[in-house]
Deep mutational scan, measured.
Amino acid sequence: MTYKAILNGKTLKGETTTEAVDAATAEKVFKQYANDNGVDGEWTYDDATKTFTVTE
């Protein structure tokens, strides 16, 4: 399944996708990606669109 992350960081804005077996696995991948890029904020998840959003 393909999951998407939308990054609304102070220094990084954009989107990325990952293939994962479930939302929990995708969330770990996206949170690591955000952390590696200095983005730390509030996370939300929309199951209907399989989209995570982080906003700083």
Rank of each mutant, 00 (worst) to 15 (best):
T55Y: 08
Q32F: 05
G38M: 06
G9N: 04
W43L: 03
T25S: 13
G14E: 10
T55E: 07
A20L: 02
K50L: 11
V39S: 02
F52V: 01
K31T: 05
G38E: 05
T55H: 08
T25N: 07
T49C: 04
E15G: 06
T11Q: 10
L7T: 03
D40E: 13
Q32A: 09
Y45E: 01
T25P: 01
V39H: 03
V21M: 12
N8Q: 09
L12R: 09
T11K: 11
T53C: 07
T51N: 02
K13S: 09
T55R: 05
D47L: 07
A24E: 13
E42S: 10
L12K: 11
N8Y: 10
A23W: 13
F30N: 01
T2A: 07
D22V: 02
D40Q: 13
G41D: 02
T16F: 15
F52I: 02
Y3S: 05
E19Q: 14
N35L: 15
G14D: 10
D46V: 05
A48S: 11
T2L: 14
W43D: 00
M1F: 14
N8C: 14
T55L: 07
G38V: 03
G41V: 03
A34H: 02
L7R: 00
V29W: 14
E56D: 08
A20M: 02
N35I: 15
A23G: 04
I6E: 04
A23N: 05
T16H: 13
G14M: 15
V54I: 13
T16Y: 15
F52G: 01
K10A: 12
Y3G: 04
Y33G: 00
K4E: 04
A23H: 08
T55S: 09
N37H: 15
T25K: 06
N8E: 07
T25L: 07
D22T: 04
M1C: 14
T51Q: 04
D47Y: 08
T17C: 12
T49N: 08
D36W: 07
T11S: 12
D46R: 02
Y33M: 08
V54N: 02
T55Q: 07
T17R: 09
K28F: 07
K13C: 14
G9I: 07
Y3V: 05
T2R: 13
G9V: 09
G38Q: 07
A34D: 00
K28M: 12
T44M: 09
K13W: 12
Q32I: 09
E56Q: 10
G14K: 12
T44F: 11
T49K: 07
T51D: 01
Y3Q: 05
W43G: 00
M1P: 12
D46L: 03
D36V: 08
D47S: 12
F52Y: 05
T51C: 02
N35M: 15
Y45P: 00
M1L: 13
A34W: 06
T16M: 15
T11R: 10
T16E: 05
T55V: 09
I6D: 02
T25H: 12
T25Q: 12
I6F: 06
G38S: 06
A48L: 12
E19R: 13
L7G: 02
T55D: 07
W43R: 00
W43Y: 02
D47T: 08
G38Y: 05
T44Q: 09
A24I: 11
A5E: 05
L12Q: 07
K31W: 07
N35K: 15
K13G: 05
L12H: 14
A20C: 07
D36Y: 07
